[in-house]
Amino acid sequence: MVIEDPKTNKLIEVEKLPDGTYKVTIYDKKTGEKKTITMSKKDLEKLLKAL
């Protein structure tokens, strides 16, 4: 799943891993910076609600 946040000009890509956690990659379209973090479903839901 890919989500675009027009306010921050970032793309957020979410991928479910076999162990039940989620790999979240955040791309900054302005700088080209890429950050990848792994989080639980509960933390991911908090992140998505904040957008």
Rank of each mutant, 00 (worst) to 15 (best):
Y22I: 04
E15Q: 09
I12D: 02
L47Q: 01
P6W: 03
L48T: 01
T8D: 14
Y27N: 05
K30G: 15
L11Y: 05
K34Q: 11
D5Q: 01
K34A: 08
K34Y: 10
I37G: 11
D43Q: 07
E4C: 14
D5L: 02
K46M: 10
K41C: 15
T8I: 04
D43M: 04
T25V: 10
K10T: 15
T31P: 04
K30M: 10
I26G: 02
P6L: 15
K42T: 13
L48D: 04
L51S: 07
N9W: 09
A50K: 06
V2H: 09
K49A: 14
K49I: 12
A50N: 15
E15F: 06
K7N: 12
E4W: 06
Y27S: 12
T8L: 06
K42V: 15
T36R: 07
S40E: 08
T8S: 10
T36V: 14
K10C: 11
I26V: 09
K49E: 15
K34T: 12
L11E: 03
T25M: 12
I12G: 05
E45G: 05
E15R: 06
G20H: 06
E4Q: 01
L11M: 14
K49W: 03
S40K: 03
V2A: 03
E13L: 05
K49Q: 12
L11D: 04
N9S: 06
T31S: 04
K29M: 15
V14I: 04
P6G: 13
K35W: 04
Y22E: 00
Y22D: 00
K42W: 10
S40P: 13
E4L: 02
E13V: 07
I12Y: 13
K35F: 02
L11H: 08
L51V: 11
K46E: 15
K34C: 14
L11V: 10
K46P: 08
N9P: 02
P6I: 13
M39Q: 05
K7G: 15
E45T: 04
T21Q: 09
I12R: 00
T36D: 11
L47T: 04
K29R: 07
Y22P: 00
V2G: 03
V2W: 01
V2Q: 07
E45C: 03
Y22W: 09
L17P: 00
T31W: 05
P18W: 07
G32H: 08
K41T: 12
V14T: 09
T21D: 11
N9I: 10
I3T: 14
K30E: 14
T31K: 05
D28P: 01
K23R: 12
T21V: 10
V24C: 03
K10V: 12
I12V: 08
S40F: 05
Y22Q: 01
K7V: 11
T25Q: 14
T21N: 07
E45V: 06
K41L: 14
I37K: 14
T38C: 06
Y27G: 08
V14Q: 01
D28I: 02
G20I: 00
M1V: 11
L48V: 04
L11W: 04
K34S: 12
I12M: 03
Y27E: 05
K42G: 14
